[in-house]
Amino acid sequence: MTAVVTEADPGLVAAASVKRRPRTGGWLAVLPLLAFVTIAFGLPALAMLNGAFTVKDPATGATSYTTANMTASVQGAYLTALLGSVELSAVSALLAAVLGLPLAQAVVTSRFPALREAVLTASGVLANFGGVPLAFAFVATLGNAGVLTRQFGLTDKGWDLYSFWGLAIVYLYFLIPLMVLTITPALDGLRVQWREAARNNGATGLQYWLHVALPVLAPSLLGGLVLLFGSAFAAYATAAAMVGSSIPLVTLQIADAISGNVLVGQENVALALSLDMVLIAGLVMAVYLPLRRRSARWLA
């Protein structure tokens, strides 16, 4: 039996050598990013985790590990503030999603590219406009002595900017643009053929949205809700400048605990509250990620 020797294809040899070549260059390029993430996020997270389970004895100064801080963070005023933040964030995120989706759809279906670019650019600016300037703008406009409040007599009609619903409306100012930016790429992924196929089978526009578009967009919508919830949940400066401590919010409780406005030596309770916020955000993300992977297969 004789062996048959054939000349190897140079292209196959080159491809095989490329596959065997170690990809060390890619890892080296990522090292600066990994170092930044470790320093900027990893170290503070470890410090928060350590402090949340640490108690210092005021007499001896000795520290010990315990769950007392975590227990205190879910009791009394701290629990009320935590639930208040969850409620405010959920309501604001839901309203922003409901209002932002049709606005994003109008932008996607617009025949004027200039209008689309203008709306998306404005959304990018407004989504990052918050804090004290936003609070001042609403106080000057809709506060007790605001321009529109006096012009239309809103106080006599029961309007109160410094309430739960007043703060929710203020949050919508930056949450709706954020929703537009988040959901627009998903709306772009809806294929024209799907709408045409639904129309050819006798489906109305409402039926197309209920049975085709919304099921495909559901994971992306949920992802937008998660992002909006997180943005509202972590907001501090706007609420602090507008309502102070009149509305219980966990971010305001953390600030009070750190500064000692309520009780001295509650810094570690503030770290426990921060850990509670991280755990809530992690639970929300755990629901979102599996659905996000499912949506990516349809919109790819």
Rank of each mutant, 00 (worst) to 15 (best):
A3Y: 11
A3L: 15
T6Y: 11
E7R: 14
E7W: 08
D9M: 09
P10Y: 02
P10E: 03
R20C: 01
G26M: 08
A29Q: 06
A29N: 00
L31V: 15
L33P: 04
L33K: 01
A35K: 06
V37F: 14
V37A: 15
I39S: 02
F41C: 12
G42S: 13
A47F: 12
A47L: 15
L49T: 13
N50Q: 11
V55G: 00
D57E: 08
A62E: 13
T67S: 10
S73G: 08
V74D: 02
L82M: 10
L88P: 03
V91T: 11
V91S: 07
L94T: 15
G100L: 00
L103N: 07
A104L: 02
A106Q: 06
V107C: 02
T109R: 01
S110E: 05
R111E: 03
F112C: 05
R116E: 11
V119T: 11
G124V: 05
A127F: 13
F129R: 07
P133S: 08
F136T: 13
A137Q: 03
A137Y: 11
V139A: 11
A140F: 14
L142C: 08
G143I: 02
N144I: 07
G146F: 10
G146Y: 09
Q151N: 07
F152D: 08
F152C: 09
T155Y: 01
W159H: 12
D160V: 13
Y162E: 10
W165Y: 15
G166S: 08
Y171P: 06
F174R: 03
L175F: 09
M179G: 05
V180Q: 00
A186C: 03
A186H: 03
G189K: 03
L190E: 04
E196A: 02
A203S: 15
V212L: 07
V212C: 09
L214I: 01
L214A: 14
P215L: 07
L222H: 06
L222N: 05
G223F: 06
G224P: 08
L227W: 00
F229P: 02
G230P: 03
A232P: 03
A235V: 12
Y236L: 12
A237D: 13
T238D: 09
M242V: 14
G244L: 10
P248N: 07
T251N: 08
L252C: 00
I258S: 01
G260R: 03
N261E: 03
E267M: 05
E267D: 13
L271G: 02
A272N: 04
A272E: 05
L273P: 04
L275P: 00
M277C: 09
I280R: 01
A281Q: 05
G282N: 00
V284C: 14
A286Y: 02
R294Y: 07
S295A: 15
A300H: 06
